[in-house]
């Protein structure tokens, strides 16, 4: 069976889900389930000691899903490393989605700080899944320092613009020897299918599902799109040409010539 393997761990689902922006923990849990996801991302923040609202993530069954803590909010390698270490202490597992985003407007990842943090975290035994711009050279360098995946962005986080970085992601996929997870900016199931058709190993979706009018239905739509895109990739896509190529026979026409 076709499986996604990250750091030796096998997954049947190729759709990773972010847990942010859902209107309730119930709709979040139902959407994760409808997506068939096995990996879900979470963030780490200070406890609000003045507001002891319920823990939104208690709705997630940690035996069923792999919690992938991110380092969101980190602006430097040092901040990301600190968050990764805290997350490891919290989960007891050493997986981390490394993101270093110094610019709050476009939330684009800092390649230099990301590489620096990745190198240190890998040495500390972390399974590092770095969120990066679609940069083939950076991807290679991250693989060289031992990251478990590369996660190039399709377009800025939460922008729903789709695969704006297609050409660069094609090169990353061609050169990668670790799974390529297209992360950020996938706004529609068709965007996810397109990434999978290109040969991406997985996609990570949050905003497009969480802020849909019906998140649970949208989660299922993404699940189907990811499966369809993967199946198309494995089927070997047919060649594109400029001129028409008739699908019906060009002989036996009912006319006299």
């Amino acid at each position: 069976m076709d499986k996604l393997v990250i750091a030796g761990k096998q997954f049947t689902s190729r759709l990773l889900i972010g847990t942010g922006k859902f209107s309730s923990s119930k709709s979040m849990a139902q959407a994760i389930d409808a997506a068939g996801a096995q990996i879900v991302t979470v963030a780490l923040r200070r406890v609000d000691i003045t507001n002891k609202d319920d823990d939104m993530l208690s709705a997630i069954d940690r035996n069923k899903y792999l919690l992938l803590p991110n380092t969101s909010g980190a602006r430097t390698a040092d901040e990301a490393i600190r968050l990764a270490r805290l997350a490891r202490a919290a989960t007891g597992i050493n997986w981390v989605k490394l993101e270093v985003t110094p610019d709050p407007y476009y939330l684009l990842p800092d390649p230099i700080e990301t590489l620096k943090a990745a190198e240190i975290l890998v040495k500390e035994g972390f399974v590092v899944l770095p969120y990066i711009n679609a940069d083939p050279i950076l991807s290679k360098k991250l693989q060289d320092v031992g990251t478990a995946t590369v996660m190039p962005l399709a377009s800025p986080i939460g922008s729903n613009q789709g695969l704006k970085t297609r050409a660069a992601i094609e090169i990353i996929i061609e050169q990668a020897n670790v799974p390529v997870v297209v992360d950020a900016g996938l706004g529609l199931p068709s965007h996810a299918a397109e990434a999978m058709e290109m040969g991406a190993d997985a996609v990570l979706v949050n905003t497009a599902i969480a802020t849909a009018v019906e998140p649970v239905k949208m989660a299922e739509a993404f699940k189907l799109a990811v499966a369809a895109g993967r199946m198309a990739y494995l089927s070997g896509t047919a060649a594109e040409s400029k001129k028409a190529n008739a699908s019906s026979p060009l002989t036996g026409f009912l006319r006299n010539e």
Partner: peptide
């Protein structure tokens, strides 16, 4: 510092 997991992408 007291931290916990919160929803995030």
């Amino acid at each position: 510092e007291l931290v916990r997991f919160v929803p995030g992408g």
